[in-house]
């Protein structure tokens, strides 16, 4: 079994979201960078669990990003994985990124490709599906559970108002979310070991970019809260009905 986990670098969940250069660039001053939580907590940890269950499993991590991605790649290697590959580019267009992942995966002989369901910065949910199409593989998105049974993948995925259980042969692309696994903290042995694990840097292949960010906007600020006394909570219901017309 050979698994590829795609990891992305995103701002920390508590990062202040502000923009620079006339609202055309994300202001990165003072921002802490993390592994995209969906990639780390669910895709990577589930892949590590599969490797723990079958020691012959080979686990590769893949990041498409610049040299500033290396700290988060080392952190991912501290959690687990045999080696990492970084495709050296700052291009953020989803199709361009998916093309890079597909180029690495094409000759890699991977049985499984895991991604997070989306990144917490662009919220695109695009990469897994694009990679699957580029490689002509089946794709199961929003997975909350993953198991191998007699060489086939049994995947539970979220649907509106419930869940669905799917079965598919490998190779397969899966996007992962909450429920797949539990967040782990790297231990000292992992952190020390990560320093010597191979991190290969490859140059990007030629690919199209179809989208670009023209500008960013922040949502308008709220007017301020209208407080209702706790002993007159029925007044809230009146306001929601008559003023906000929300119920």
């Amino acid at each position: 079994m050979k698994i590829l986990v795609c990891i992305s670098k995103t701002p920390d969940t508590t990062a202040k979201i502000a923009f620079a250069d006339n609202n055309t660039k994300f202001a990165t001053d003072g921002v802490q960078w993390i592994i995209n939580p969906y990639d780390e907590w669910y895709a990577l940890v589930r892949a590590i669990e599969l490797k723990e269950a079958d020691a012959s499993t080979v686990l590769h991590l893949l990041n498409v990003g610049g040299t500033d991605s290396e700290p988060i790649i080392r952190k991912a290697l501290a959690l687990g994985g045999d080696e990492a590959i970084r495709v050296n580019t700052d291009n953020a267009d989803p199709f361009y990124i998916a093309s890079q992942i597909a180029a690495v995966a094409k000759d890699g002989g991977y049985d499984l490709i895991f991604t997070g369901k989306e990144t917490i910065d662009y919220n695109g949910s695009s990469i897994g599906g694009m990679v699957a199409e580029l490689l002509d593989l089946p794709y199961i998105s929003h997975a909350t559970g993953f198991n191998l049974e007699a060489g086939k993948a049994v995947v539970v995925r979220e649907i509106e108002g419930g869940e669905e259980t799917d079965k598919a042969a490998l190779p397969l692309v899966v996007s992962c979310q909450k429920g797949m696994a539990e967040q782990r903290i790297p231990n000292m042995k992992g952190i020390m070991g990560a320093r010597t694990k191979p991190l290969k840097v490859v140059e990007p292949v030629a690919a199209e970019s179809y989208t670009s960010v023209a500008s960013y906007d922040l949502p308008p600020a709220k007017a301020g809260v209208k407080l209702i006394p706790a002993d007159n909570a029925a007044e809230l219901v009146r306001l929601l009905h008559e003023e906000a017309k929300a119920i």
Partner: peptide
Amino acid sequence: SNNTSGKAIAPRLSVRLKAGLVSG
């Protein structure tokens, strides 16, 4: 619609049609 089906199909279609995708 950017729901679970849309999020699974639209990226694949983006590749097939060579069409830029804006999700969300």
